[in-house]
Design a protein around this nucleic acid. Structure first.
Lengths: 340, 340
DNA sequence: TTGTACGCGTTATCAC
DNA sequence: GTGATAACGCGTACAA
């Protein structure tokens, strides 16, 4: 076992000073060619690499960005991470991942931990509990300290920072308009409770587009899932009670439960009932029938978020502060859960 | 914007020395009660937190562990991360995630980067390219430097370190035995090429259990997918050519393609053909018919890996070196793709 | 009871 | 052309 080589050791070995070694390796013109050659050769031979921690301490930069997400066992978040990782890597940044498990306390803990020197900035999607509590002190805390923060997906107006969102309203409108165009009259909505902003926005899109098409809104055709653990039963009940042509679900899971419920009712998808989901994951692609969905392009969102963050990190402090909100476009992907 | 508070600033503000502050905050008995109280109050008021980077440099420990995986948009790896994260967090460690994208070069780059002070140790699953190349110098490099390494899932004997694997052979045997018990005579195998160790091991399990049951082995009933991009077509062809009672697929994707192929051939799953997969992901649970699978328990694997790594990290250097291999048991989960 | 000095690994500045 | 010194933020052995 051979411990890591340091400047000091090289210096001792070659009988020169530490600063000479440092300069030689950075190819400074101050150092004589001979000495440089010797030192570089030695460093190369023994595979010297500067210690990141020491550099971080010196430069007051860690070159790592922290991602905090509610859960990782979730296709969408996974694609976002992938996007972040890609551009972060290109620009020489590392990515450190923390999970809040949708818990407010863990989110706060994680942020504090990472804020104490571990990362230069944050990319995050807020925990459900945080959205309910409406307590954002940990976010303002870090931004006050001058650490850039980029919020994505689950976002709130109260926090001033860069944001990456999708056009939830427009995405929902696209989906419902598509159903209307295919001749659907009674279109059900399966959504979440309103403090989850995506649920709220997609619901708004649904309502708006119905109005624009002069379709009367029937509150009975709107289901808001309270408890994810009982979503299956709630959806089944909802499908059984109502006589729908089509269903717009705000995520994959709801969409699939809707399809199952329709089938168990003895009807066919898409012949009797069309179903559209939101978020384009593995499930949508491979389910039978494969799901027509509004794709969120998580990878693009991650990439955008990383770009925004790194821009902030590498900006000169003189430049004036301003916050951008990037909207990543959704697109409707037609598959087999809707009529042609 | 208020920059982070340091010991130095507290000292200046309160007109004491830095070390007094440090000691007071660590509740040292050397410091007078009065002074302690004053300093603690101030620190609490302004929310002082020690700088992780400085601590890392001083202690030569980062309290973070690096995970390097081939890809993150993959349910299994995602569950492993989740498991690692859980026990890491319990023990006060952070998790930094790097993706190799199955590329040898990126794997090497990532390891070198993290090895230069960013992490205390590694948990990794090797890139496909690395397995093909059989070049493990980057792994021996870090272990030589005294950094603990835990390999999981994709593992090779040549590298000496702790390992977490599943009983691939036994898992495969369980699955095939199950099919035999249900009366299957012609059992097809859909596997990967042999340099992917999981493919090799699961194939071995398949062969062994057939022998143990005195079932003749027919090479025609074994398909080894070369190119993932054409797996669908290859499987379709395979299913069409052979007249099978049952199929054992070494992953979810293959299993689902097999089911599709069977259905397109005009047969029914599970009535005419039973199908068992490996790896228990979203897809298996929600597909219709839902898939009977051998579950890998990724979360447990991640947790085990983290435990092994942290044990090594926190062990006294005197204790002698030894490497463990933990085998996480698989279990067969019965669903609707096999006959009752 | 408090403060000084040192070291962790690096680089920048300044002196020789 | 080379080397000593300070600084980044912290903890601690030792001196006062």
């Amino acid at each position: 076992m051979r411990p890591k080589l340091t400047l000091k050791q090289i210096a001792r070995e070659l009988d020169v000073s530490i600063s000479t070694v440092s300069k030689a390796l950075r190819d400074s013109s101050e150092i004589g060619e001979e000495t440089k050659k010797k030192i570089k050769a030695f460093a190369k031979l023994y595979n010297y690499r500067p210690n990141n921690i020491a550099l971080s301490l010196k430069n007051r930069k860690t070159k790592t960005i922290g991602i905090i997400i509610p859960e990782i066992v979730h296709y969408f978040f996974t694609t976002v991470i992938s996007g972040v990782e890609q551009v972060a890597n290109e620009k020489g940044y590392n990515v450190i991942v923390c999970l809040s498990n949708n818990s407010f306390d863990k989110e706060v803990l994680n942020m504090e931990l990472l804020a104490n020197g571990s990362t230069d900035g944050f990319i995050m999607s807020m925990a459900k509990e945080t959205l309910q509590k409406e307590d954002y002190h940990h976010l303002t805390e870090v931004t006050n300290q001058g650490m850039p923060l980029v919020l994505f997906d689950r976002v709130i107006d109260e926090v001033h920072c860069d944001k990456v969102i999708i056009d939830d309203v427009i995405g929902a409108k696209k989906a419902v308009q598509y159903l209307i165009d295919k001749g659907a009259k009674k279109i059900g909505l399966v959504s979440t409770v309103d403090y989850v902003s995506v649920g709220k926005l997609r619901t708004r899109g649904y309502l708006e587009i119905l109005r624009e098409n002069n379709v009367e809104i029937d509150e009975n055709l709107i289901l808001k899932i309270e408890d994810m653990d009982h979503s299956e039963a709630e959806i089944k009940d909802f499908i059984n009670k109502n006589d729908l042509d089509a269903v717009f679900a705000v995520n994959e899971h709801f969409a699939i439960h809707a399809i199952k419920a329709v089938q168990e009712k003895g009807l066919k998808v898409p012949d009797d009932v069309s179903v559209i989901g939101f978020t384009d994951g593995e499930l949508s692609k491979r389910f039978i029938p494969s799901l027509t969905t509004v794709s969120q392009h998580g990878e693009r969102m991650g990439a955008e978020a990383a770009r925004l963050l790194i821009d902030k990190l590498e900006r000169k402090p003189e430049e004036e502060e301003s916050y951008k909100t990037v909207i990543v476009e959704t697109s409707l992907i037609e598959r087999n859960s809707t009529k042609l």
